[in-house]
Design a protein around this nucleic acid. Structure first.
Lengths: 228, 228
DNA sequence: ACAAAAGTGTTCCTTTTACACCCATGA
DNA sequence: TCATGGGTGTAAAAGGAACACTTTTGT
């Protein structure tokens, strides 16, 4: 059988919008580019897709090289393919967003990154390429998904208070929620297990909860889970 | 500045799930492949992305070559990138779904397609590559979007009855809707203009409506438009 | 004793659902 | 005249939004 295709002249990358959450702030992991083009600029972690990898595998590789984390929640976004989005080559990118628990990672900038840090989403620097647009798309997707799937638990530590959880939702949705209504809905969803532990704070103790992973599996199968 | 990229070894295509709607049946436009691989099999219309095109432009080109139609509703789906999805080359595809009004098209199979036809979604033949999976993804996306955006009007003819519209929703959602509740919600959404025309049928005349495109623009900007 | 966060129920209103009859037309 | 599809309203239930006070602890 004859090969009938031209040599392709478009490169493919993956870029990862890696979300973390730290005491009421949503954060994104940025790297400083170690080489041209856009050397020295802040950018999303990413890399070329290898011939033997699926898009997901590429994204997992990028993520695990940088954080050592595997097996996290990931979702693919729409491709970015503007003709001039890269100054030299024609490159289209398959973006992903990933949710990483702070407790699990240890940053490990590699050859292509001279530095890496967690950046609050309300303090983003100027970014390389069209990475600002990719982040906006990821934030939109996160806002959509957080109402449909219990992904908050992918970002919070194992044990958390109701306030922690509410802070997360408020940070993602960028709106205030009523405390009593919030707690009632979460309890109604039956996705939490109340622990016999409290967190000591400056004031009244707060009850700690963990996520009920049995329920999660049920929920993941039903598409029509709506929290708010 | 030095070019630092390897010659890419992954090809990129677009594939189009083109939906039509004909008297209560949702349909998809299929082509018969005129060349290897998978020569003679039914497949989605598609083609290689050109270096000077965005993904959307590629998809529009494929669509307009086949149907002569331009300026239709299109939405990008997640990339399909399984390593072995194509038997010869490494090819990833960016799938789109498009909505085409029957009144607007005239099929025009071109060189890569020896035949083309509108296939009822409940009578799909065996398809080339992973095109069955792409169609499933498109159907899922359509089900999601039909509740959020007034895309029904992209598929119906200019003038239609309430029953036509309800048939469309029922075909997409694969569920029966209550007639009175349906009509109330549609009227509440204020997206229809009642015409001074009726359609003569076997029985009582049915009032014709058209879509209010002024309202459409308003709706498109607000993300949280929910019909059902 | 007071400041600050945790915890808890009820009422009202809006939205959704379920449901039945008359009308116009063609055969 | 009857069979078929077109057209309309209401009542009950569920879900969402708004709202205030008491408890605990540290200072």
């Amino acid at each position: 059988m004859k090969l009938q295709y031209n040599v392709p002249d478009i490169s493919i990358t993956v870029d990862c919008v890696i979300f973390g959450f730290d005491t009421s702030k949503l954060q994104i992991l940025l790297i400083k580019r170690a080489s041209d083009p856009e050397k020295g600029k802040w950018a999303l972690p990413g890399g070329f897709m290898e011939k033997h990898e699926t898009a997901e595998e590429s994204a997992e590789r990028v993520l695990s090289q940088l954080t050592g984390v595997t097996d996290v929640y990931m979702d693919q976004l729409k491709v970015f393919a503007a003709v001039d989005r890269h100054p030299i080559e024609r490159v289209i990118t398959v973006p992903f967003y990933a949710l990483v628990k702070p407790e699990n990672y240890r940053l490990n900038p590699s050859s292509y990154a001279s530095d890496a840090y967690w950046c609050d989403i309300d303090r983003l620097p100027i970014l390389a390429f069209d990475h600002d647009e990719i982040i906006n798309a990821a934030l939109d997707a996160l806002k959509r998904d957080v109402r449909l799937k219990p992904i908050g638990f992918e970002l919070l530590p194992e044990k958390f208070t109701m306030k922690d959880l509410q802070d997360f939702f408020e940070a993602v949705l960028e709106e205030k929620l009523d405390r009593r209504n919030f707690r009632r809905k979460i309890k109604g969803a039956k996705i939490l297990v109340k622990l016999n532990e409290v967190r000591k704070g400056a004031h009244k103790d707060a009850i700690l909860y963990k996520f009920d992973s049995k329920t999660y599996r049920t929920i993941s199968k039903n598409t029509f889970y709506i929290l708010f």
